[in-house]
Design a protein around this nucleic acid. Structure first.
Lengths: 388, 388
DNA sequence: TTGATAATTCAAATTGTTTGAGTTAATCAA
DNA sequence: TTGATTAACTCAAACAATTTGAATTATCAA
């Protein structure tokens, strides 16, 4: 894979690179599509698209899918992405474990694995990550030589922020250039981000938000994170720490949002009642039994969610807010069905195209899959250009 | 001015357009600069930059500024923007008045004017706007034929939102395509936005935030708005209504942020004390006398600001938050100097490059000048490309 | 069967950038 | 003062991409 660095000026070669990506994006979003249609969508000539498709086919990125007869004229040869044309590695580093997933270009998880982590110092983590990568390649030999890159998800905040130690930051990672370390260790292009951004990217690529270019993702991790995609691009902030919505104080007690709305919050609540449910399955089980403590927690969580929605909708005006992450489906559905949607919001429209809240991917691997999705997204979408 | 519509695919001609804009951006940010330096910054060859500069000079966009001898080698011919190379019209429509400003390419206001408005129906407003434009051209004949476009600022929210009538929306504008109306009426390319976005753009182009690519702008209008610039691009949201931070409830009373932090808020506060101060000058005067009601208001406003900062910093991770708008400088300075900056924020860094809060442009015309700045920004900056 | 329509290909033309050689004007060092 | 070095700039030719226009193919509709 040729990696072209960010350049401000354009020339023929950079145009071609851009057009290649744009063609891939068209094919991805359409599923299967012919050259002429791509050409129209991109304002290019069919000849140009033909040239690019020939190249992509030769590279094994596209598959020919026969001709589609649609009305008059020569039926168009259809193309679709070759799922085996490229692979992306997703890595999620948590304080107690490392997760890995290998996705094919269609976004399917071909292989997943986790290892427990005794300590989080970089050497330790990098060793595990390399081993996981090697194992994935062993399990999926077809991916050798076709790796598009690795997405890495780590607990933020990134960089030196003065609130180190207050959050969930990993010990030993405050002062290092994590991207460089992973790049060197894996020998792959690396994209680093937090769990919420990764999950949002996955939702954009393969999930509920495929047809939206501007949406928000409320990610339930240990705390509560916010992933923002605006005009197809992640909003990461100046230092990569945007989306820390969990820190925001909410009425009436001025508590932090994530004190009421996060996995740690449920677990603390259960603990106070001398109960325990560390896994998603256990939580689901309690919910299915209508456990009163779970229901009580969901009550306060619902109120908290309403505040979060108020903030996110009025600040971002998203098409929707997707809820996902390491929470049981049942919890997310309950929250969505019972929350009071604020009236005083720019998202309060008479006939919205999408519900204001939707449930996205959930489960333990959400962020890991999202990490890989960031790589796929990069490979399969055209750099945005001109908002003028 | 050739207007090139948004196209996803690239070709030689579109590359040239992009490179022209990129060259202009380099010249603008540098002030004066030589070709070779531009070429290095854009990863283009000096030959290419030479060609483009020849074209721009012929178009009257650039001025030659002699040679700069800097070390060895042939001294570079310096170029800078020709202030008279292009002009931008700024229009601000308020419920009771229309403001207009004509800026040259250097961002200087050459001409400003206002007319009172009896009613806000589109025909009425468009008539006034056309007249203001005609008058501006009469006053500044050099601008004829060199207009880059018109920026228009109107009270949001835009589109149908179900909270119509609750905000400050203009009567008669809910169901119309305002951009199309202004474009047709003025015969110029039009960019439409809200006051906060316009002010933020101005601050980015000519103000405190020139060297920042990601920052937030808290705009004091009648209410409180938030303008967001992320990686050099405005974050407008899916429907153009992002930034309505004034709606967000804050502790302890769950009141709206703008109930404590806006011009209407001061005025209501004064009214309750049987005082009145409708203009910025009158407010400044009261402040200078240490009026107790003003000081009391500033006290609650400071607390409210602290909450706003908490939300904005944690959600966006900006380089700074600029405070500006239709408020006296003294008020903004007082707020900045007395606010308690939240500890639990990703912006709480040990040695920040910029203060977390800064005062930007203030005064009655802030948004009007910002409206014109949106046009200058569009003409003088390269479309963003590749965040990969 | 025939004409219209639409996708595709081929070769030539076009646009804009890059390359490489040469010119100019400055600094630096002998 | 002179010559070597450095750097900006120009010119013309080469290059890399897209576009253009004509020809080919396959389907639909009358």
């Amino acid at each position: 894979m040729v990696v072209i660095p960010f350049q401000k000026g354009s020339n023929a070669e950079r145009s071609r690179f851009r057009n290649r990506q744009a063609v891939l994006e068209q094919v991805r979003t359409a599923g299967t599509i012919g050259r002429a249609e791509i050409a129209r969508a991109l304002s290019l000539t069919t000849q140009t698209v033909s040239n690019i498709i020939a190249e992509l086919s030769a590279d094994g990125m596209l598959l020919e899918k026969g001709r589609l007869t649609a009305g008059r004229g020569l039926p168009a040869i259809q193309y679709s992405l070759n799922p085996e044309g490229g692979y992306a590695l997703g890595i999620e580093v948590r304080p107690d474990a490392v997760f890995a997933a290998l996705l094919d270009m269609a976004g399917r998880a071909i292989h997943t694995e986790r290892v427990a982590l005794k300590e989080t110092h970089p050497d330790m983590v990098l060793g595990h990550v390399s081993a996981l990568y090697a194992k994935a390649l062993l399990k999926v030999p077809a991916a050798t030589g076709r790796m598009l890159g690795a997405g890495v998800v780590m607990p933020g905040p990134f960089g030196v922020t003065g609130i180190a130690g207050m959050g969930s930051d990993l010990i030993g990672w405050q002062e290092v250039d994590a991207t460089a370390l992973f790049t060197q260790s894996l020998g792959l292009p690396v994209v680093l981000s937090n769990d919420a951004n990764a999950a949002a990217t996955a939702e954009h690529l393969n999930g509920m938000a495929q047809d939206m270019s501007t949406f928000a993702y409320l990610y339930f991790g240990a705390g509560l994170g916010l992933g923002l995609i605006h005009k197809g691009q992640l909003v990461r902030g100046a230092f990569g720490n945007a989306g820390e919505i969990g820190h925001v104080p909410i009425p009436p007690q001025n508590q932090k949002l994530e004190d009421a709305l996060s996995r740690l919050s449920v677990q603390r609540h259960l603990q106070a009642a001398n109960k325990q449910a560390d896994s998603i399955d256990e939580l689901t089980h309690l919910f299915d039994q209508s456990d009163p403590d779970i229901l009580a927690w969901l009550g306060t969580a619902t109120t908290a969610l309403s505040h979060a929605v108020m903030i996110v909708e009025n600040l971002f005006d998203p098409e929707t807010i997707v809820l996902g992450g390491a929470m049981p489906d049942a919890f997310l559905d309950h929250l969505i069905n019972n929350v009071t949607l604020p009236d005083l919001s720019v998202s309060n429209r008479p006939s919205p195209r999408h519900p204001r809240l939707m449930r996205g991917t959930s489960g333990r691997m959400t962020a890991t899959l999202g990490a890989a999705a960031m790589i796929l997204n990069r490979a399969l979408s055209a750099p945005i250009s001109n908002t003028h």
